[in-house]
Design a protein around this nucleic acid. Structure first.
Lengths: 349, 349
DNA sequence: CTGAAAGCGCTAACAG
DNA sequence: CTGTTAGCGCTTTCAG
């Protein structure tokens, strides 16, 4: 029987460590460490030997040990209000994608739109601890800042640009969304533009502001009777759109263009209009919001405002990376992402 | 100037450690550790004191250190083929949710349906290392097993029950999906049931098998002319449904029930039928698959097969937890999840 | 250019 | 019941 005092103890298949490579090559583990971290004070020859052996043994550094020593865990947290909404899903997806080529991993979780859960998730993630946190919050920003920005973990807020924040952030230009939609309809010749607006949230209010701005810019007067507010309606978006269309069909002044708060609302609206004999887009043009794949390619391809969720995710990830590189700098930077119009048949005149 | 040799060095706001609590309370950090891990050999009084101070200082254990010592990282990896598909999204969401109450965190990533990316993500996550991996793979299972199950990290496969695997797994009963849909139509009196089938994948083939089984069970003959195979059609699901309906409308034998491979296909089918003057569900009943919220509540509420993605996610998470508890046991366990029927207007006769 | 020593925060094993 | 010792795998510091 052979006794090898250097033999690894512990779990059955322990992975290869720096020391294994070192003894293999008659070097100290220090040298290995240096090579692996790209220090320059190593001869080209030893460097090559080390790299060779590292590849052979498929050595992976033990990140726990690395973290314990350096304080960095090579992980980034992402918390979104909901993973079932395409918008946030797309953001999360793009953060993950953007970080795939780096050595960072992503802790993803959802606050389920509950401030309480959000708080829980934040402290859960900070306790881990993560190196940076990307957060699309559902809380008042002031409360939030105290809670999260107090620590030393860089925070990147993803928000609607509602508040001026003292934190790094990626803003979505909500107002521009409404402006873009309305001005598109103006450009194709609409004179009586309706708006099926969203719930009474900061974000929906901003979009509505943008809508009014666009009308003003075009010298059109704002018609309150063409604003459909489905507040309190607990239906599904499609049904809300359908109900909105019914209301508009009964209206004295018939709209020749409709801005809808979501794509599904738009589809519901269109379906109902079409059933009532209205020609879309000839009589009435319809534009949605979200540019969701499933919804925009139904019976009548829907023009929609793309919220640029993918860009938001990418920017957030890049911002996180930047903050982690130049960790010394405590400079706060914020990025703004603009929505874009995707024209389709529902407004093709 | 005050010199305190015990003052913490390093990053500006270092968090509180076990030692801090120990010195505060004139105890050794060992005792703190014991209390925190629920060891019984500590007096009730000291235990209370420790817990008190832990709360006061909001002490969080340093997980890197813990991991280095114990080999467990308190993190679980989840890799799905796609985060934009509701089915996988729902699985991921439920894993995260299920694990929220535990001390585990979730590394979520997507393989984007690319075996290469999947491999990358697996090794990325294993390198971290995670304590367990929940994987909905896009690869051949044999290749996979060698790759991932070889290590010591427990693997939980989420799959279609295609292969008999030597790994822990959560299966979806694909066949049952087709069977359930068809037999529902049989039960409401359909005699000429069409099938708008999915692509030529293992999963879609199984569903189709189930469909045929149900017909056989009901003593109905299988009609190849009522099977619409849209292989190669690169359209969107809605358009595929619409095209399928057109084909069926031109068919000699008109179906009185249609099983569709997805909800969106079903909606496309329905819309087209309705436009052609067919009464749904009276003349033709339609059933979809996926029970996706957005799609099932359009003009005509759609009966659909719920794939139980939430249950799949929950079970996978629970299985992972179980494996991590009784880590000694290398027993392989697998769970099967059944789909359920959700009846709505499109088959209400 | 290479390496020895010390220690990150925690826990397993054993003494008192 | 409480504490001491040792060391997980890595990096920082400094000496050859």
């Amino acid at each position: 029987m052979r006794f090898d005092l250097n033999e690894r103890q512990g779990s059955p298949v322990m992975s290869v460590r720096m020391k294994d490579i070192a003894t293999d090559l008659n070097l100290s583990k220090m040298t290995i460490s240096k090579v692996l971290r790209g220090q320059t004070d190593v001869s080209a020859k030893t460097k090559a030997r080390v790299l060779q052996r590292v590849k052979e043994l498929n050595y992976k550094p033990n990140i726990s040990a690395q973290s314990l020593r350096t304080g960095r865990t090579l992980s980034i947290g992402v918390i979104v209000p909901s993973l079932s909404e395409p918008f946030f899903m797309e953001i999360a997806r793009n953060v993950v994608q953007q970080l795939r080529s780096t050595s960072y991993s992503v802790f993803l979780s959802s606050s389920e739109r509950e401030p309480e859960i959000e708080r829980l998730e934040i402290s859960h993630q900070l306790a881990w601890p993560i190196d940076a946190l990307i957060l699309a919050s559902v809380q008042s920003s002031t409360e939030l800042q105290e809670f999260a920005a107090s620590g030393q973990t860089p925070l990147i807020l993803v928000d609607s640009g509602t508040a001026v924040l003292k934190s790094n952030s990626v803003h979505l230009r909500e107002q521009e969304i409404g402006r873009l939609a309305a001005s598109h309809l103006v450009h194709i010749g609409c004179r009586r533009i309706a708006n099926v607006r969203g719930p009474r949230t900061a974000s929906a209010d901003l979009r509505f502001d943008g809508f009014r701005t666009a009308l003003a810019e075009a010298g059109q007067r704002f018609r309150p009777d063409l604003v459909i507010d489905l507040e309190g309606a607990d239906d599904h978006d499609y049904q809300r759109g359908a109900r909105a269309a019914e209301r508009l069909l009964r209206n004295k002044v018939k709209p020749d263009g409709i801005v809808c708060h979501t794509d599904l609302v738009a589809v519901g609206t269109m379906d109902t209009l079409i059933c009532a004999g209205v020609q879309v887009p000839r009589d009435t043009a319809v534009i949605g919001c979200g540019n969701t794949v499933q919804t925009c390619h139904m019976r009548l391809p829907l023009t929609s405002i793309d919220l640029s969720a993918s860009k938001v995710g990418q920017r957030a990830a890049k911002l996180a990376l930047t903050l982690l590189e130049q960790e010394g700098t405590r400079r706060v930077s914020s990025v703004t992402v603009s929505p874009t119009l995707v024209g389709r048949q529902s407004t093709a005149r």
